[in-house]
Design a protein around this nucleic acid. Structure first.
Length: 890
RNA sequence: GGUCGUGUAGCUCAGUUGGUUUAGAGCACCACGUUGACAUCGUGGGGGUCGGCGGUUCAAGUCCGUUCGCGACCACCA
């Protein structure tokens, strides 16, 4: 018999159970099960280099609730965990921590070792001195450094997940840079290539000058910033002039046309003529275009290559030349205006003016050109401050520029309808989130740019021939064969070539880029299902059941995953998407590192217990943002404590260590009150089950919790004295059996939410020595059948007899109220009790009267139950007369 | 400007297809209480014209229209 402790020590219990669950292997996925027996979760791989905060705990708990429910239903669970370690945040951290920077042209140094502890120490010291010397290393070495760092970050996350009680199968863990993921990602690329879905092209692409890389549409975001309107005077050839208001005067040298709306009478006379740009004195056409709005600025605007996406659009449709003015590093490029096809009246002057801008960063160049324009008398008035929204890379510091570069694209614009159909085939929870993806797909403007000019990521499995003149042949890439995957073209020679031929005329070169991190993380279902190496396994897990994620990455992660599943399997990646809301700080702002309002979760787990933190997470409705409120942890802890104490009471009423599991069955439940309890529990179980089936665990918790508190406050008090009876009567047996059954139900209802305390209590008297019921978490989810007493009783319970419970609690409550108002203790005896109510209620009350009287210390009272009008708004009119003294009942 | 969501007690939130004549919970607040599971507790109490206006209905927190506030996403951003 297990000794039951007086106090619950959550830290000790959490450690013990986390270990035990691992030893038992109860979270292990069984690959031999069929698809129908399996419940597969496409859990989000967190960016390990990001900050860890309570929002993580919140959303990961949500998936675990659904998983635990499905496990109790008997499903074989595939609940993996991945780490997204590709991408810019990792690179940035590695550069800082190790003081290195990647030079992809360097050869791999296989003796280079990265000592993390030392590096972090150095990093801390180095920062103080402000030294920024960065040693150059090869790409492979750089990747090794990234891996060394991320594996440390992963340990921190894993530790937290385990403590939180996430029922992850850790043998299914993956990292987006590991061999299998690289292979999957490269195979995906090859498959898309074979299907004609990828192409590469030299196109103007959104570019972050800070990171020096292309950026996809989904990663762009608007920022409201301060800007200035500059009124510039343009002359018209043959006479006349007009004013253009621009926020970007530094792009003047890239102006290739000016446009006004076709209906704009002010400019109609100029259409077809040529304008002369100030300073550069370039001749540019004056054209009509629908996209110019007459009432904005002066109604006429510059088309530059490139100021914004509208310029790109316009340039693409026109046959105008391209004058790239901004370099990849965000500096103004040197340009020779003598060169064609640019016509300047005075190329020397243009060159002289431009020479003062070349090499400057955009902001500096803007200040400089304002000076030049002012001197030239072409700046009309002073710049006027305005606020305007500008596109940024979501992680970037500078406004995006458009830079022409060779990029890889996935062709998706022609497939909007098919993608929409797939998105609609998936069930979204909450349902309104579906419109977000629909709008996103509908509004797509660009194909998906998947190449990044970075180092830490999955390389393209592609090489190019170099002809005898040393020019790469981009049009006929050499593609890796599947057996080579994963391949690093930087260190492995192209098929048919020797390593010695790298980079020389007649030889080959590797594609220098890596894939965007989303190109790999969009394959998480395929990674987990072994699409790349085990088709049979793939069929057993794909499409998956649920994708839990938050709403801000619908347009990226969810969308790209849908794209890939469609491309590779012409299928949906999962049946359900479960969207969690955000955690907001008390000012209703999203918690994020940049805002500095991040709250870390570890100490809450220590202070309040993992169950308490999970309780807080579990309360949130799906998709709804939640304000962080520490007091809810307290509510969770309170519930845990209550469960502990109530269970101690119930178990004290049983006798030996197998009683809970085997002896006190529903056949003993004969008393009306106890039967009514079971009827209540039955409907609670039905409600909670339905809520879980709707993917609304918060509602299931609410149901279980309400029922449980009522059980403690009312039922336990009503039945206590009967259960304490010295003699073994049917009433006493009925009480014990009902208490036992109720507790077994509650423990299983709470198990998904509060895994530690429910397992702890389960182990006292209910756990079997083997099989499913060894752990509460593999025990069968409670069913209505367990609580059904037979057809006759069921009918009984639903009609008149359902009331006995409510009638009993109401009268008990009235007795309590009288005592409280009289400032007497609750065990103060009652001398007289008069109850008046409708016939059916009076009848119901009579059936449970003994329990009520005992619970209200009214067993010696003079009692009268009459038919008649109840009190207003109540079931009964109750008149309580308390005894004169505590010892007398007269 | 477009779309979606949201507005219920001081705070955080429930309220399922309109229907227990008087809208719930937790926290906070007030009062009382050493009852054999529980003082990390128990019992009881005060507190809301359900954002505003209009409509449908025997009946509206719930449905419709309109308007205001808040949040998010998208578009524009010369």
């Amino acid at each position: 018999m297990i000794e039951i402790p007086k106090k619950y020590k959550h830290r000790e219990a959490e450690e013990r159970w986390a270990r035990q669950w691992e030893d038992w292997g109860i979270y292990r996925y069984d690959p031999s099960c069929t698809r129908e027996q399996t419940f597969a979760v496409d859990s989000p791989p967190p960016t390990v280099s990001g900050s860890l905060h309570v929002g993580h705990v919140f959303s990961y708990t949500h998936q675990d609730l659904l998983v635990r429910y499905q496990r109790m239903l008997g499903k074989n669970i595939a609940y993996p965990m991945g780490w997204d370690d590709n991408g810019l945040p990792t690179e940035r951290r590695v550069q800082n921590v190790f003081g290195i920077k990647c030079n992809p042209h360097l050869p791999y140094d296989k003796d280079m070792v990265f000592n993390l502890g030392e590096a972090i120490e150095k990093d801390a010291g180095g920062k103080k001195k402000g030294t920024k010397e960065q040693k150059e290393v090869s790409r492979l070495n750089f990747i090794e450094a990234c891996a060394a760092l991320t594996s440390e970050d992963e340990k921190v996350f894993e530790g937290l997940w385990r403590h939180l009680g996430l029922s992850i199968d850790w043998t299914l863990a993956y990292a987006t840079i590991d061999e299998r993921c690289r292979k999957t990602s490269q195979k995906s690329f090859l498959d898309m290539m074979a299907k004609g879905r990828v192409y590469h092209a030299e196109l103007p692409t959104a570019w972050d000058t800070g990171f020096g890389t292309a950026v996809a549409q989904a990663e762009m975001t608007d920022k409201e910033i301060d800007g200035k309107f500059h009124d510039l005077q343009f002359d018209v050839e043959g006479g006349g002039h007009f004013i253009i208001s621009t926020t970007r005067p530094e792009l003047l040298g890239a102006c290739i046309a000016v446009v006004a709306h076709p209906s704009d009478e002010r400019y109609q006379p100029y259409f077809g003529k040529t304008a002369v740009t100030p300073l550069y004195k370039a001749h540019v056409p004056i054209l009509a275009s629908e996209h110019a709005e007459p009432d904005k600025g002066t109604g006429i605007l510059m088309v530059c290559t490139f100021g914004d996406s509208a310029d790109v659009e316009y340039w693409r449709k026109s046959n105008l030349p391209l004058r790239q003015l901004i370099g990849r590093d965000g500096r103004i490029l040197p340009v020779d205006y003598h060169a064609e096809p640019f016509q300047s009246e005075d190329p020397d002057a243009a060159n002289a003016a431009h020479a003062q801008l070349a090499g400057l960063f955009v902001k500096q160049a803007r200040a400089k050109i304002v000076e030049l324009l002012r001197e030239a008398g072409k700046l009309i008035g002073e710049p006027r401050p305005i606020k305007h929204a500008v596109k940024y890379y979501e992680k970037g510091e500078f406004p995006l520029e458009f830079v022409t570069a060779r990029q890889w694209f996935v062709r998706i614009l022609d497939a909007k309808e098919e993608l929409l159909a797939k998105a609609r085939q998936i069930k979204w929870h909450p349902e309104f989130m579906r419109t977000r993806i629909e709008h996103w797909i509908d509004g797509l403007q660009y194909d998906w740019c998947i190449s990044r000019q970075r180092f830490f990521g999955v390389p393209f499995p592609v090489w190019y021939r170099i002809d005898d003149n040393g020019t790469p042949d981009y049009e006929h890439p050499i593609v890796a064969t599947e057996d080579m995957l994963p391949v690093d073209p930087m260190s492995q020679a192209a098929p048919g070539y020797e390593e010695s031929q790298r980079g020389i005329p007649g030889g080959f070169m590797a594609d220098p880029d890596v894939m965007d991190t989303w190109a790999t993380s969009s394959l998480t279902p395929q990674i987990v299902s072994h699409w790349a190496d085990d088709p049979e396994q793939h069929a057993k897990l794909f499409p998956m059941d649920i994708r839990p994620q938050s709403h801000e990455i619908i347009r990226t992660w969810a969308f790209y995953t849908i794209v890939k599943a469609w491309l590779h399997d012409n299928d949906i990646p999962w049946k359900h998407v479960i969207i969690s809301g955000w955690i907001l700080d008390p000012d209703r702002k999203k918690m994020s590192k940049s805002k500095g309002n991040v709250i870390t979760p570890e100490h809450y787990l220590d202070d309040y217990s993992a169950d308490a933190v999970r309780y807080w997470s579990s309360r949130a409705r799906l998709g709804a943002d939640t304000i962080f409120e520490e007091q809810l942890f307290d509510a969770g802890r309170k519930l845990t404590t209550k469960l502990f104490n109530a269970s101690r009471f119930v178990i004290s009423q049983l006798d030996s260590d197998t009683d809970g599991r085997e002896r006190w069955t529903k056949e003993y439940v004969t008393e009306p009150l106890d039967r009514a309890l079971l009827a209540r529990l039955r409907s609670a179980v039905i409600d909670a089950t339905e809520a879980f089936n709707r993917f609304e665990p918060a509602s299931a918790l609410q149901t279980a919790e309400n029922e449980f508190w009522d059980f403690c406050d009312n039922y336990v008090e009503l039945v206590k004295r009967r259960s304490y009876e010295a003699e073994d009567t049917p009433g006493r047996r009925s009480a014990k059996a009902a208490l036992n059954i109720a507790l077994r139900i509650f423990l299983r209802l709470f198990a998904p939410f509060l895994p530690y305390i429910s397992e702890e209590i389960w182990s006292w008297r209910f756990a079997a020595s083997a099989g499913r019921e060894r752990s509460v978490h593999t025990s069968p989810w409670p069913t209505a059948e367990e609580l059904t007493l037979g057809q006759a009783e069921e009918g009984e319970a639903d009609n008149g007899h359902g009331n006995v419970y409510v009638c009993a609690t109401e009268v008990l409550s009235q007795i309590r109220q009288s005592k409280t108002l009289a400032q007497k203790s609750l065990r103060w005896p009652v001398a007289k009790l008069l109850v008046q109510g409708e016939a059916k209620d009076a009848e119901a009350l009579k059936q449970v009267l003994t329990d009520v009287l005992l619970a209200g210390s009214a067993e010696n009272a003079e009692v009268a139950i009459k038919e008649g009008q109840p009190a207003e708004g109540a079931r009964f009119m109750v008149d309580v007369t308390l005894a004169e003294s505590e010892n007398s009942a007269e």
